[in-house]
Design a protein around this nucleic acid. Structure first.
Lengths: 201, 201
DNA sequence: AGGATTGTGTAACGTGCGTTACGTAAATCT
DNA sequence: AGATTTACGTAACGCACGTTACACAATCCT
């Protein structure tokens, strides 16, 4: 909900105004670079100076292009959520039994977590590293809640009673936390897939 | 290895010199408080000023008593590792089948993670939040490696071939990462125990 | 060409953090 | 009592970080 949060500076497509001096760097590539770093190191683990250095720009160019560190994070997070939630939705809709849902969702998660060099989940990584009082945590948690609700609804539609469905959702959530952390720490896709098979009886 | 790292300022027992002005605060209680915060928020998520405020002291007293933030972290981490590794060793030794080992270790982990208000694992929480280049990560990883080696040895002693044993160790490691993060985010012991039962077929 | 608009580089500001200098207070030892 | 040892409180330092002022450069519109 509250999906009317608009990018602070640019629309999703990287079109630029036709007047004035053109940019000397690729802002879209910069966003991708930032997305990778935010997923790997978390919001607090990334500093603007490093991002600027990796993009080959100076701080004023960064702020002109992205607004602020937090605005950039919100942008790449929104794009990440849009992409991944679609993948999870397909996994959930395609599941025909509770066990199948568990397996499909976890396999999908592994596929997402091992993209881009195996960096884990941007949402989970930031949830795991932030303190409870942070305002951003509420938003990250709401993203997770949406996924859990989707799983719960599907499991009930498949005939699973509520208590068992909730327990299964918790199990999948715990497994995803572990898979994300393991992917970030370097475990490769083959090993993670084997772990999923081992975790889904 | 290299176990001769000695506490920067005090021996494990909280004995104090008999001369000079006595302390106006309980350093042992302060260490416990710090241990809880380091496990919950990670090394970087704790600031010295907050610790001082919670202990009711000023920074110079903190440094006189504990040496530095990092020295205090090493101290409480060493104590935590000594305590938990004993618990894990008992779980591993008491296991009679691979499935039993898996279940015992994960149950032990849940018991440890839900102590002290459900704050997760101090080692895993800090591993998950630190970047790869950090020198402290190597030490934290070596603690994990020791646990994994102990599991691997026991599994082979139980007759499990190496590839399967390694895969099972990876599965347990991933599950522990998830359980620690879930405990930190507020999942209670009953739910976590149920998750463990669900993850151990 | 000349003005308007947008981007860039240098250099700095403010804040929060870990840490410490320094003078003062409270205990023990001779 | 005086000297010595240890701890405390105030205040500050140095550094890294997010962020911005300001002057200059490059492009588009008329």
């Amino acid at each position: 909900m509250s999906a009317t949060q608009i990018s602070a500076t640019e629309e999703p497509t990287c079109q630029r105004p036709t007047r004035g001096r053109p940019r000397a760097f690729d802002a879209c590539a910069g966003r991708q670079l930032a997305a990778r770093r935010f997923a790997r190191d978390g919001f607090e683990g990334v500093c603007v100076a490093d991002l600027c250095a990796e993009m080959g720009i100076n701080p004023p160019s960064f702020y002109a292009a992205f607004g602020s560190k937090e605005a950039l994070f919100r942008d790449v997070l929104a794009e990440y959520v849009a992409m991944t939630s679609k993948a999870y939705a397909e996994a959930i809709e395609g599941a025909n039994t509770p066990r199948d849902l568990r397996h499909r969702v976890l396999r999908t998660a592994v596929g997402l977590f091992t993209r881009d060099g195996g960096v884990g989940c941007m949402v989970l990584a930031n949830l795991m590293q932030k303190g409870g009082g942070d305002p951003m945590v509420a938003y990250l948690q709401s993203i997770l809640d949406a996924l859990n609700d989707a799983m719960l609804t599907r499991l009930q539609a498949l005939g699973l009673p509520l208590p068992e469905a909730e327990a299964l959702v918790r199990t999948v959530a715990v497994a995803m936390l572990g898979l994300s952390a393991a992917a970030r720490s370097g475990m490769d896709r083959a090993a993670l897939d084997q772990v999923v098979d081992d975790l889904v009886p």
